[in-house]
């Protein structure tokens, strides 16, 4: 069995609210999750569930109030800026919005070479590596001296993936990387993620609101609701036969692209909601 790469234990994240005497907003209420080397863990939830915050906590972009984040056995939840920088070659990120995650005034070559030159890679080697990275994500070498705005959303997301791969990390946090893309582009970018994982053995923490996307890519899936993980386990099981009432509601709410089966699912959903309502009432009485 693969080693545990990332071990998140009871992590709490508070966001301070503006104004004196206001209690901070607790975005994560003690979340635990683990990722093995080479594994994809899907993180599903609706807006405000805390899934993005968990990703940012792992990346060191959100400050952790409680709990620990162990990376290869070492706590990385409260690192100083210098120590955090050293982790750049281990943990990387692909963000949701391909329009704002690339600096509009830098060329693709400058964007991709940046993490390399910081590590004193000679210019010639960096340039070679950029060509190699572009090739890995299926873009032509001629893309190097263009600006981000010359590319479509799908192509930009490929560039963002190439940037994440530049330092050959062991873990990539993917924050809704395909939700801004068109259907057919989305499928191709997801294939690219799988392909890269097969080739390099990188692990993904894959954050998404879409159960079907997560199902397609994840070995294990965690479902978040109001800052907590309500269900966590095997990807197939969680996305097809969920146990927790919220995951059941989530699954039933996503429409099936087939009119006949969608009519069936709609009826199932009403039945489920009715059942859960009765259970709630009984629980309230008892």
């Amino acid at each position: 069995m693969n080693e545990v790469l990332l071990d998140v234990k009871d992590v709490i994240v508070d966001y301070p609210l503006k104004g004196l005497g206001k209690h901070p907003f607790r975005a994560l209420k003690g979340v635990s999750i683990e990722i093995l080397a080479g594994e994809t863990v899907g993180l599903v939830g609706e807006s405000g569930s805390g899934k993005t915050t968990l990703g940012r906590a792992v990346l060191g972009l959100a400050s952790v109030t409680g709990g620990s984040i162990l990376y290869k056995g070492k706590d990385i939840s409260r690192l100083g800026r210098r120590q955090r920088r050293a982790l750049a070659s281990e943990i990387q990120v692909v963000f949701q919005d391909p329009y704002t995650s690339l600096n509009p005034s830098l060329t693709i070559e400058q964007i991709l070479a940046e993490p390399l030159t910081v590590r004193n890679v000679p210019a010639r080697d960096a340039s070679k590596r950029v060509a190699d990275l572009l090739d890995q994500v299926g873009l032509p070498g001629s893309a190097a001296d263009r600006l981000p705005r010359e590319f479509s959303g799908g192509q930009r997301q490929r560039i963002a993936i190439a940037r994440a791969l530049a330092l050959q990390p062991r873990l990539i946090v993917c924050d809704e990387p395909v939700s801004a893309l068109d259907l057919s582009t989305q499928a191709r970018v997801l294939d690219l993620f799988r392909d890269i994982q097969d080739r390099t053995g990188v692990a993904y923490l894959f954050v998404s609101h879409d159960l079907s996307v997560v199902r397609h890519l994840s070995h294990r899936v965690a479902v978040m609701y109001h800052g907590e993980i309500v269900e966590w386990g095997d990807g197939d099981q969680v996305t097809s036969e969920p146990v927790h009432p919220y995951t059941q509601r989530l699954l039933m709410a996503s429409p099936v692209p087939d009119p006949v089966r969608q009519a069936q699912r709609r009826a199932d959903r009403f039945r489920l909601l009715e059942l859960q309502r009765e259970q709630d009432v009984q629980a309230g009485v008892a």
Binding site: S184, A187, V213, R215, S218, W232, G233, D236, Q237, S240
Partner: peptide, 29 residues
């Protein structure tokens, strides 16, 4: 092409390695 790009009915990725059932069925503590 559009229909082919739909993921809804696709197979799940499955477990990373064949792992013991006890670990795979881990439920929230």
């Amino acid at each position: 092409t559009l229909f082919d790009a739909i993921l809804e009915d696709g197979d799940a990725r499955g477990a990373l390695n064949p792992v013991p059932a006890a670990v795979a069925k881990e439920t929230p503590s």
